[in-house]
């Protein structure tokens, strides 16, 4: 507990002291929301309410994939080797990274929620927001664990950036972020049905309408557990070669 909190502390300070990083983490999601929510042709009663969950999950996705580049930095700059030679449990490196990245993603989500309210989205009761945060946390843990695992396999930033681009855009457009499932072309719908983004986004929409999305929550919990198991197994095997 103490050790992974130390890694979180370190990443937080490093992030906090780079003003440009902070600005871009907070301004990017705002820009997405404003462009997508206000500029897109309004077909629904409140497209902003429809699109906000999509933007929340997109932000969580890009932010969580950042976990991979963060561990890649630690790996290529030699920090990781120093950490591995320490007596603290090696998994705490991994957990610290996932916790920091997920918390940072939740912070961005908060910015989006505040701005969405400012530009006209519905205000929900507190319990709704708590539900949204639970789903976003589960999703964030899964994706950041996935990102770190992939980064452990790859050996440089270029390959990781390629992976990031390769994964994030298709996943996003093949999800229910921008259009509902029943309006999708068939081919896209098949993909969307297996896409974890769909479960996160639809789950958040259900919560907004007062429905508890049991299936989405279960799906995301199982996904998070599975990825964490693979991730820690991979981490152990790669760090003792």
């Amino acid at each position: 507990m103490y050790r992974f909190a130390t890694y979180v502390w370190r990443d937080t300070i490093r992030w906090k002291r780079a003003p440009l990083n902070v600005l871009s983490t907070l301004a990017m999601p705002a820009a997405w929301l404003i462009f997508m929510g206000l500029v897109m042709p309004v077909k629904y009663d409140n497209y902003l309410d429809f699109v906000t969950p999509g933007i929340l999950v997109l932000t969580m996705l890009t932010s969580s994939l950042g976990a991979g580049s963060s561990i890649m930095f630690d790996k290529t700059l030699g920090y990781l080797n120093k950490f591995l030679a320490l007596p603290s449990p090696r998994e705490s490196i991994l957990i610290g990274k996932i916790v920091f990245i997920t918390l940072r993603g939740l912070m961005q989500s908060t910015v989006i929620l505040i701005i969405s309210i400012l530009i006209g989205a519905t205000i929900y009761p507190i319990s709704t927001y708590i539900g949204m945060y639970i789903l976003l946390t589960l999703f964030g843990i899964s994706i950041s664990a996935l990102g770190t695992t992939v980064a452990l396999y790859l050996d440089n930033h270029d390959s990781y950036a390629a992976f990031q681009a390769f994964v994030s855009m298709p996943l996003y457009f093949a999800s229910t972020a921008l259009i509902p499932m029943n309006e999708m072309p068939d081919a896209l719908r098949y993909i969307a049905e297996f896409n974890p983004l769909t479960y996160a986004i639809d789950g958040i929409r259900d919560i907004a309408q007062g429905i508890i999305p049991t299936f989405s929550i279960c799906f995301l919990i199982i996904l998070a557990i599975l990825i964490m198991i693979v991730c820690s197994w991979k981490f152990r095997s790669i760090t003792i070669g």
Binding site: Y2, R3, T6, W9, L86, P87, S88
Partner: peptide, 8 residues
């Protein structure tokens, strides 16, 4: 300090 904490 960071290392001291990691050393427990």
């Amino acid at each position: 300090d960071f290392y001291a904490k990691l050393y427990g």
